[in-house]
Design a binder for these strands. Structure first.
Lengths: 339, 339
DNA sequence: CTGAAAGCGCTTACAG
DNA sequence: CTGAAAGCGCTTACAG
């Protein structure tokens, strides 16, 4: 059973198929009454326009490609939610592809997006391979990067303001009275780590606190990877009273590491994360963290694309602000007790 | 700058464009040497086949539509990961759409999938609206449902064996020595709840334990929604020593509720969840739970579709088994102390 | 093995 | 306001 086409409707209503095409898209070029007859016939016959045929002629498919490192990542899931929502609101469908940070896969994905004639591409991938960039840019469609690690190289992007957010997080700790504040960063040299670290130093500096290299350790962005650096911190002659972590995953691991030493959060050590993944509020104690506006970031990225499609000027680099969410993993430091 | 088409290649190599088309798809109908010349020209010219043109003529787009209630849901994210991975391995691209369980949106999504001529549809949505089913089924493409709530109504599906998994979970508690085991279900009357509850009763029955209605309470699938039912359980003259929860989210809330009463897990009360979301291993104590093979379920659903595309027979209803992951939220009950 | 012809289901100048 | 013609970039009988 072949789906009904505009020719079928044309035959039914006794007009030419271009007239049907015009009527269905509300062209002013067709008289009100025949347009109405055509539209009624269309619904009666259960007509659905064939988007691929339309795409072939208009060269606009009303699709976008989204490439992520892992859709199972809760951070990315939220971002994609925002993308998909606004894409849909504007009549766009989204192709989703996981790269798994595998360069071969990244190339395959870009090729497939190209072959499918997507109108634009969104990349939400914390680490974009070096080879990948030029490949992307030689595509003839607009691209916007979300929290990418090389903001200078691309025209359009939406990124979190890591520095300002970090300053706020560390100032929160300072206001609580902490003096020895550690930073547990990420070992992969991501730009986001560099920036969060910079914010940390900046906050210390403006409080006239010394920068103590021994308080800087590095995890790998996973809970397990935070255990050992936490050990190092706690093995210090004078351990920190607070730890600011690169992200929530790291903070969760740090929490576990602290517990393994028989210490408690926030009584013995305060802990701050970054991201505000949904589970941050479920752990015990609920985690103080910097919320990244994940959905809005996805939405804004899609909005840039939509503006670009209509040839409007679009901002080149949107920088969004994080929000410090104070929960229960931070508290004033214990009064010192001599032992 | 127009992308290069097979006509451009044909001109370059001095053959007809159908010959180019054949050569590029490795048709035996073209001589080895001209085929080789054509392919070399194609890569030299940076040719990429236009998938929408191809789709129009072949009536196969090599795309599938995936509809989920929320891509930000960690369970669904994993399932989609499995889908996307195997789709990609077979040359399919996936359209992802969020329904937010909104009927109007569901209808829009199905229409858009229809217009885009997807080859098949996957639904990973715990609650599919009643109206939605007939709409889906009148589509002319194969559909497979993942963990759907109305297995009888559809031809293809992959579902978790809730009953067997529940029996295992409750037997684990029984073997630990628990006698008063509560079930904290879900209040929305989902079939998965009915089945998990049935498994719970079955496990009790085969151990010759009485069924105690006062030990049955209901959350709403969220952590917050589990606090109050937990209060009820703990307010009982003799509270349970273990609680089997509908899912991990509920278990996390139950954990919090237990703590709010100054009790500890697993010392005072054992807790079992369902799903094995990634954070289940991060909470304190790490949660004993039933793992649903989320990625494999996505993979299998996609594999059914692929078999159907090649006209092969495909299983109608795949039932997958859960796996009990024993972590630290379960322990033998405390020896009774009289007060 | 190769090419000329037709067609997939639309949209869009071009005439009238 | 309407229709005939052309064309989007491919694939696939049909001839030779």
């Amino acid at each position: 059973m072949r789906p009904v086409s505009i020719k079928d409707i044309a035959r039914e209503v006794q007009v030419s198929h271009p007239t049907v095409s015009r009527a269905l898209r509300y062209s002013p070029l067709v008289s009100a009454k025949t347009a109405e007859r055509i539209r009624q016939a269309a619904v009666k016959m259960g007509y659905r326009p064939n988007a691929v045929a339309r795409g072939l002629v208009t060269k606009k498919t009303k699709t976008i490609g989204v490439v992520v490192t892992s859709i199972a990542d809760p951070f990315i899931g939220e971002v994609v939610s925002g993308i998909e929502e606004t894409a849909n609101d504007h009549g766009y469908s989204v192709f989703l592809a996981n790269s798994n940070a595998d360069p071969a896969r990244e190339i395959r994905i870009v090729h497939s997006f190209q072959e499918r004639q997507v109108d634009g591409i969104l990349v939400a991938s914390s680490r974009v391979g070096a080879l990948y960039m030029p490949l992307l840019s030689q595509l003839m469609v607009p691209i916007v990067l979300i929290n990418n690690q090389h903001p200078g190289e691309f025209v359009h992007s939406v990124v979190i303001d890591n520095i300002t957010a970090s300053v706020q997080a560390v100032q929160h700790l300072i206001q609580l009275g902490h003096q020895r504040i550690a930073y547990m960063g990420d070992q992969f040299g991501l730009q986001s780590d560099t920036e969060r670290f910079a914010g940390y130093r900046q906050a210390l500096a403006s409080a006239d606190y010394p920068f103590l290299p021994e308080l800087i350790v590095h995890g790998d962005g996973t809970p397990q990877g935070a255990i050992q650096p936490m050990d190092r911190l706690l093995g210090l002659p004078t351990p920190p009273t607070a730890v600011y972590c690169y992200n929530d995953m790291t903070a969760i691991g740090a929490l576990k590491g602290i517990r393994m030493h028989g210490l408690r959060v926030p009584d013995d050590i305060s802990l701050v994360g970054f991201d505000d993944l949904s589970f941050a509020s479920y752990v015990d104690p609920p985690l103080t963290t910097v919320r990244q506006p994940k959905r809005p970031m996805g939405r804004q990225a899609m909005e840039i694309l939509i503006k670009l499609f209509s040839n409007a000027q679009a901002e080149t680099n949107i920088k969004v602000q994080g929000e410090l969410i104070v929960r229960e993993s931070t508290a004033p430091p214990k009064a010192k007790v001599s032992r």
